[in-house]
Amino acid sequence: MLAPAGTWIITPGHKTSRFPAVRSCRADVSLVDLEDSVPSASKPQARDAASTFFTDPPARPVLGIRISSPTTRDGIHDLAALAASPVKPPIILIPKVESARDFEIVAGALDTSRYTPLLYALIETPRALEGLPAIVRADRIAGVLFGTADYATTTGCSRTWEPLLHARATLVTSAAAAGIPAIDSPYFALDDFDGLRREAEQVKALGFTGKSCVHPSHLPVINDVFQPTQEEIAAAHVIVRAAENAGGSIIRVDGHMIGPPMVTAARALLARHTHHTPNGAPA
């Protein structure tokens, strides 16, 4: 399976009434949560309900789960429940990752000859940021997500753009060096759609390949920002055709010099567009 990027949404595992809407929404990935959004007393209920979230998975979104940190008692219980479950998620989001060892624990508990889920790291502490070079090269890592709430709480900074810019840029750089997708944090002001769009455009410009959210009302804005426009798709087709006709030489397109990095970016854009089009056909 291609490691998904794009739009991600997460819903509390003990709020089963929300499952149908999250399973049928226009996100690329929908996660059921066993961690922060679930009170301690409701965690056993959430573990039991999770299997119903994964039954009869839709074509889109791809379904997944956020477990508790595998270095905690709750995380151990989550892994045991997943290992015993007859229905398992394609994606597992591991929170509070600070070492590549976290992937070894999760993979060791869950991997079988028939089941090897995509493992994503939630980067949300200064120690994780310092350990990124090793984390992004873990054998089983599929991608990274940024958690602004915990990061800001740990560092004492605000959740505005400037204080978090260094962490975001560092995460994107490390993810790009490892060739894995980087997904940005949710925008927590639920009714501020202008602010959401502005932040989504900023993180896309920075190099993030997607953004997560905690409410379905944010999905149309995030999808609109991260889905290539028809103009971008048409321009990418022109670049790729011109490069193929030039046999790999540097080319001129619409007054711009186009070298191999721009051709690679155009091909990547077209690949993402085809992946998100029904039946994989160009729109």
Rank of each mutant, 00 (worst) to 15 (best):
S174G: 11
T16N: 04
A176N: 12
L82R: 00
I92P: 02
G247C: 01
A266V: 07
D139K: 12
R23M: 03
G210H: 03
L82P: 04
A149E: 14
V97S: 08
H77E: 15
K204Y: 06
E35V: 04
D184R: 00
V238M: 08
A283N: 13
R267W: 10
L269R: 10
I123A: 09
P282K: 13
T112P: 06
V106G: 06
S69P: 12
N245L: 14
L270Y: 10
M257R: 10
R198D: 11
G143M: 03
H218R: 10
H14V: 09
T55H: 13
S217K: 10
E201V: 08
R114N: 12
T155K: 14
S99V: 10
T154W: 08
P133Y: 10
P4W: 00
A235E: 12
P12T: 07
N279I: 02
T16F: 09
V172N: 05
S37K: 01
V106K: 05
T153M: 14
I9F: 01
G13H: 08
G131E: 14
A265N: 13
G247I: 00
P261T: 11
T170H: 13
I180C: 11
G280E: 09
L34D: 04
V214Q: 13
P58R: 02
V172H: 07
E98Q: 15
V106W: 12
G247R: 00
G255Q: 07
R66C: 02
G280H: 12
A175Q: 13
T55I: 07
P282R: 15
A83D: 11
Q227M: 09
F53M: 04
K43Y: 09
G108Q: 08
K88P: 08
V62Q: 09
L206D: 04
H256A: 09
V38F: 13
A142D: 01
P126C: 05
L122A: 10
K96I: 03
Y115M: 02
A175M: 13
C213E: 09
P90Q: 11
V225C: 01
L145C: 12
G207W: 01
T52V: 10
H218T: 03
L93N: 05
N245G: 07
K96F: 03
F208A: 05
G147T: 11
I258V: 12
R197V: 06
I105A: 08
